[in-house]
Design a protein around this nucleic acid. Structure first.
Lengths: 343, 343
DNA sequence: GCCAGGATTGTGACCGGTCACATATGGGCC
DNA sequence: GGCCCATATGTGACCGGTCACAATCCTGGC
């Protein structure tokens, strides 16, 4: 077919209808699996569909029906491992449900810029998934108009931003608690913490898990060092910590931060793990191959993305399997950067 | 307005029209900046638009006009630094042009799966940007139907896949050439190469740049070691190379691979850079903070993404600034993993 | 004062689907 | 045989815009 090579505009249901000798409505019934269509008619229509290479026009479908089978993921960044993994998880689940996935980057946390991005996402139609681990994301989540279906990916379910919106989360608090306990159990007097930028003004889930572990152990609670997201921030923070001989264990808000800290310790001549132990957060793919390899906690980001989509999907379609998402248990991964403190 | 709190369906141009006392067509003219509208009328319409909070429905626009102001990026993975950066670049440029960005992950390189993803992307409407650095991407690029506007992001412009489709590229060949020369200039007899999975059956641009440098220097040309994308592949490859005492310099197809190689060398007790020099490719953000820090070449992936979008944009809209994209010059970044060979 | 012609504005059809309702068709049952 | 109802199919309007064309207004030139 189309032997002429002419770019023919794609077949519509009316084309299929004429080809099959039925009305366009019948074709619509067939493609929607409506029960009351005579088998012989259905076959004729299906044959025509196949013959003409008909595909249902997603745009027209969205316009006419109002639902758009699309999700937009709003994120502050696409290159961070955790964010990118969440995105990948969303895409995976969306693909399985034949939803389209859009993406919007929140380049700045500034009010107007965020609002503009939310608007754009809303224009695209469909639901929204907002990664709200950082100020930009949180602001985006809170500024989503009420009538838009949205799911937040947040770090803590305790009073999550965005009010009573549905959300998914990894148990960051528990994860931080576990790593901190691990370090303490090795004999460290206390554990210092290099934080990622907090998503809210209040303390983050990671910070609070860390603090809880210290408190339970009766360990002193040093003030968290503020880091950024990348290794550069970790490096700066690490330089400060390296100067203090009392520091023997450092927990970092993510693996990139930990990398920077490791580098700073190395530059200061402090051996890891013999003098100082370091632990990260997230278990990025490269962490296992560092020298020394990084002790960290693994979080199931892809699963988180899938869960976020499932929740949104359930909220948008009636065939809702709205089972609250099973929070995956963070897994402590002990490697070479953690050890007993020097005596 | 909307004081009742009722979720009112968004205003359409006909709502605006009645509010302003004009016809819907006049409203359409105003929002499209058509010249022949009396200023006083225009003001009235703009006021009504503002009052009702009117936003042009993107779906209806796409259906009626045929053009959809959307791009879909097809990629094998969202978590690799290079890919994620390209995506980020595309999004940035698309946002500036108020285009929506969609994403499709090519989970498998298998024919049917790839075809399905291309179909889905086509259904979304708008253009396509295919990251064709790997087999899945290349297959996707070649299977895009001719009538769909598409831009390939490829590693080499010499007989790129996808026929005469427009493409953008980083000069991988030149980059590989530079790093290899750098290593040779330090005195290494030759440079071994751990390759990323090649995108085509023929040798990749990186491989050929490496080979050219060796040839020009009259150095022996060892057979490239096949790696994967991640550090695990580099680790396997590195273990093999570590056993051969003749190996004093290793170039890796990307920074993750290099990380794996570094780890393997460490485990085998071979010092870097004193016994073996290692260089990577891409300059991922963490590479500068490794210990020892990684010598690599920086490629402008974000710029590449922006260029890809610009090209597509130019192809789709008449207001075309189709200037062929200025290939950014790869930048050699010499750090600690490269040094003179042992004597 | 009349008319040509550009500036403004309006009307109807259409993009490709869905939805609500009307209209055949075919059995089963009294 | 007639009636009722479930099954099968068709018709018209609509989603919210655009496009092509028609209609009206206004102004200057003769």
């Amino acid at each position: 077919m189309n032997v002429t090579g002419h770019t023919r505009r794609p077949a519509s249901i009316r084309d299929v209808a004429t080809a099959a000798g039925v009305s366009y409505q019948t074709v619509s019934r067939v493609i929607n699996g409506h029960p009351s269509v005579k088998p012989s008619t259905r076959d004729r229509v299906l044959a025509a569909i196949d013959e003409l290479g008909f595909r249902r026009n997603a745009t027209a479908l969205a316009l006419a029906s109002g639902r758009s089978r699309a999700v937009t993921v709003l994120t502050a960044n696409t290159t961070h491992y955790g964010y990118a993994s969440i995105l990948q998880g969303v895409e995976e689940a969306a693909r399985a449900a034949s939803y389209a996935v859009g993406i919007g980057v929140l380049e700045s946390a500034e009010e107007a810029a965020v609002a503009a991005q939310v608007q754009r996402a809303a224009d695209a139609g469909g639901g929204l998934i907002v990664i709200a681990y950082d100020p930009a994301g949180v602001r985006a989540l809170t500024s989503v108009p009420a009538e838009l279906p949205v799911v937040g990916v947040v770090e803590t379910p305790a009073s999550p931003p965005g009010g009573d919106r549905p959300w998914v989360w990894t148990d960051d608090r528990e994860a931080a608690y576990q790593v901190t306990r691990h370090l303490l159990s090795l004999g460290h007097e206390t554990v210092h913490y290099v934080a990622i930028p907090s998503s809210t003004r209040r303390t983050s889930a990671r910070t609070s898990g860390w603090r809880q572990a210290l408190r339970e152990a009766g360990a002193p609670e040093p003030r968290p060092v503020q880091g950024s997201w990348g290794p550069a921030g970790g490096h700066t923070a690490g330089r400060k910590l390296a100067k203090d001989p009392a520091v023997t264990a450092v927990l970092c808000g993510n693996d990139d931060l930990a990398l920077g800290v490791l580098r700073a310790l190395h530059e200061a001549g402090r051996a890891v793990p013999d003098e100082v132990s370091v632990a990260g957060f997230d278990d990025a793919p490269h962490s296992a191959y560092l020298t020394p390899s990084l002790t960290t906690v693994r979080l199931d980001f892809t699963g988180l993305g899938r869960a976020a989509f499932a929740l949104l999907h359930g909220a948008v379609e009636e065939s809702a399997q709205v089972a609250p998402h099973p929070v995956s248990v963070p897994e402590l991964v002990v490697r070479e950067t953690s050890g007993r403190p020097p005596r």
